[in-house]
Simulated assay, not measured.
Amino acid sequence: MLKTILIIFCTTLVAGFLVIGWYVFHLFKAWNGDGYSPVDKAVSDQYYTKENQVYFVSMGNFFSLGARKIEEADISSFRVLTTEYARDLKHIYFDGKIVDSVDIDSFQLLSRMHAKDKNSVYILGQREPRADLQTFEALGESYYAKDKNSVWYFYDIVEEADPQSFTALADPVEGEDQKNSFRDGRLVDES
């Protein structure tokens, strides 16, 4: 009886170690990128190549989020522009997805979040039709931008802000105009 219990215990223990070993092996393999090579690690930890294909890995997190193949990407001309933006001969990408309706030849980055071409303004890879193309400007690496009509916080227009006097502050969520202070795109109540 004791011999049977000992055999069952040892078998269960060995099986447990095998399962734990398999899990640790795959965790390490996924954590190390499983054969993926960064396109330009100095610029972005989100774009990788493997077996002559381009992949997007959100926040460089292979283990939890995995790699998504960018089907349309041309590996021979693919290059990373910022953490989120990349391009090849035919497309501009934001977070691994094609930016629609962009004019490749006139595309220019204004900041990590903001870009424009001869036809449109783009915020986080999305065309923003409300923005004035001629006067739109990113305000450093803050989350704010402005044009002659509006101040923008991400996609939202900051209604209370004066675009003529608005400036972004060192903290990317803070800004001010000649009369008011703003945090997270909202008026700061100073009373």
Rank of each mutant, 00 (worst) to 15 (best):
Met1Pro: 11
Leu2Gln: 13
Lys3Gln: 09
Ile5Met: 14
Leu6Asp: 04
Phe9Leu: 14
Cys10Val: 15
Cys10Asp: 05
Thr12Leu: 15
Thr12Val: 14
Leu13Met: 13
Val14Ala: 14
Val19Trp: 10
Ile20Lys: 12
Gly21Ala: 07
Tyr23Val: 08
Val24Asn: 05
His26Asp: 09
His26Val: 00
His26Lys: 10
Leu27Thr: 12
Leu27Asn: 12
Ala30Gly: 06
Trp31Lys: 14
Asp34Pro: 00
Asp34Cys: 00
Gly35Pro: 05
Ser37Leu: 08
Val39Leu: 08
Val39Tyr: 07
Val39Lys: 07
Gln46Thr: 10
Gln46Trp: 00
Tyr48Phe: 15
Thr49Glu: 13
Lys50Gln: 08
Asn52Thr: 05
Val54Lys: 04
Val54Ile: 14
Val54His: 06
Phe56Met: 01
Gly60Asn: 02
Gly60Ser: 04
Gly60Tyr: 04
Gly60Glu: 01
Asn61Cys: 06
Phe62Tyr: 14
Ser64Ala: 14
Leu65Ala: 07
Leu65Thr: 11
Leu65Gly: 04
Gly66Ile: 04
Gly66Arg: 04
Gly66Trp: 05
Ala67Ile: 04
Lys69Val: 10
Asp74Ile: 04
Ser76Trp: 00
Ser76Lys: 13
Phe78Gln: 00
Arg79Cys: 03
Val80Leu: 05
Val80Lys: 01
Thr82Glu: 08
Tyr85Ser: 05
Tyr85His: 08
Arg87Phe: 02
Asp88Phe: 05
Lys90Cys: 02
Tyr93His: 02
Tyr93Asn: 01
Phe94Tyr: 15
Gly96Asp: 00
Ile98Lys: 05
Val99Ser: 03
Asp100Arg: 13
Asp105Ser: 10
Phe107Trp: 11
Leu110Pro: 02
Ala115Lys: 08
Ala115Cys: 11
Lys116Thr: 10
Asp117Trp: 10
Lys118Arg: 12
Asn119Cys: 05
Asn119Ala: 09
Ser120His: 15
Ser120Arg: 10
Val121Gly: 04
Ile123Ser: 02
Leu124Gly: 06
Leu124Phe: 10
Arg127Lys: 15
Glu128Thr: 11
Ala131Asp: 00
Gln134Gly: 07
Thr135His: 07
Phe136Ile: 01
Phe136Arg: 01
Ala138Asn: 07
Ala138Leu: 05
Leu139Phe: 01
Gly140Val: 07
Glu141Gln: 15
Tyr143His: 12
Ala145Arg: 08
Ala145Tyr: 09
Ala145Gly: 12
Lys146His: 11
Asp147Gln: 01
Lys148Ser: 15
Val151Thr: 12
Trp152Lys: 00
Tyr153Val: 03
Phe154Arg: 13
Tyr155Val: 09
Ile157Cys: 09
Val158Tyr: 11
Glu159Met: 07
Ala161Gln: 00
Ala161Asn: 01
Asp162Val: 01
Asp162Glu: 12
Pro163Glu: 02
Ser165Thr: 15
Thr167Ala: 08
Ala168Leu: 11
Leu169Gln: 10
Leu169Lys: 11
Ala170Lys: 14
Asp171Trp: 06
Asp171Gln: 11
Val173Ser: 08
Glu174Ser: 15
Gly175His: 02
Glu176Thr: 09
Gln178Ser: 14
Lys179Ala: 13
Ser181Pro: 00
Phe182Pro: 03
Arg183Gly: 01
Asp184Arg: 09
Arg186Gln: 14
Leu187Val: 01
Ser191Trp: 08
